[in-house]
């Protein structure tokens, strides 16, 4: 009896660990280790997926754009989670990256940076664009990058093999499209008859099939004091909708 129990204990001393205890241990590991251990077993994979918020280096919040010291705008990250699972954000201006470019977009744990450079090997010279995608590995390694374009008929679509064109609600220039809370949002500034910009409007595409935009918010522009470049910050947790004007 005793012998049997000892050998059983020896076979799996960690087998009786509760899920909370495994997470408690994993929460002390760097993100890279935690991700690698998704390969340990399906149980660990499910555990890590379902507790990713408790694990190390998980952030949730949003970016706002601020004037940089050397001109241009610099992103600033506002963290909405506090506690041990969330260490101080290293540098939200991404200055630890060489040729970091500027923050193009972010949503659902993805951060897209973009920079331009002149292609020296091309005899004619030519502007090239580079994109860097950062992702929260504790959420998902699956992602798809696309870019909205505007066609000759003032309609926005998505470049790629499968796409649809949906007319924007006001058929005007300079609008801004972003996904928030799982819905496509469109924001733009409206002018009065004297061509003065007076209002900010935000539409939401409630139903993808109907292609009907619904007016979700509108605000008189004097509430905002900025130049009128709109950013709808995607947010890392994907659960809130915050609009900023920078």
């Amino acid at each position: 009896m005793m012998k049997g129990r000892r050998s059983k204990r020896r076979r799996s001393p960690a087998a009786s660990f509760t899920d909370d205890l495994i997470i408690e241990i994993l929460s002390r590991l760097p993100a890279r280790s935690v991700c690698r251990f998704r390969c340990v077993s399906k149980t660990w994979q499910n555990l890590i997926s379902s507790h990713h918020r408790k694990l190390h280096q998980t952030l949730a919040g949003f970016f706002t754009m601020h004037d940089g010291e050397r001109g241009g705008s610099v992103p600033h990250f506002t963290n909405v989670i506090s506690g041990r699972g969330c260490p101080a954000w290293v540098s939200s201006s991404f200055d630890f990256l060489p040729n970091r470019g500027y923050l193009q977009d972010c949503c659902n744990g993805l951060v897209l940076l973009c920079n331009y450079w002149w292609h020296s090997e091309n005899p004619d010279g030519g502007k090239c664009r580079g994109l860097r995608l950062g992702f929260d590995p504790t959420v998902s390694p699956h992602f798809f990058v696309f870019e909205f374009f505007k066609d000759d008929h003032d309609r926005y679509g998505v470049q790629g093999r499968a796409h649809r064109s949906i007319p924007v609600p006001d058929n005007k220039e300079g609008g801004f499209i972003q996904e928030s809370q799982g819905r496509l949002h469109y924001a733009n500034l409206e002018a009065n008859d004297d061509d003065e910009v007076v209002r900010l409007v935000v539409y939401v595409l409630e139903d993808d099939d109907s292609q009907q935009w619904t007016l979700k918010h509108e605000a008189k522009l004097f509430l905002f004091f900025a130049s009128g470049v709109l950013t709808l910050p995607g947010n890392l947790s994907g659960s809130r909708s915050i609009l900023t004007v920078t």
Binding site: S12, A14, A15, V40, S41, K42, T43
Partner: peptide, 8 residues
């Protein structure tokens, strides 16, 4: 170390 079975 953890005596975990690889179920993949």
């Amino acid at each position: 170390v953890f005596n975990i079975k690889n179920d993949y």
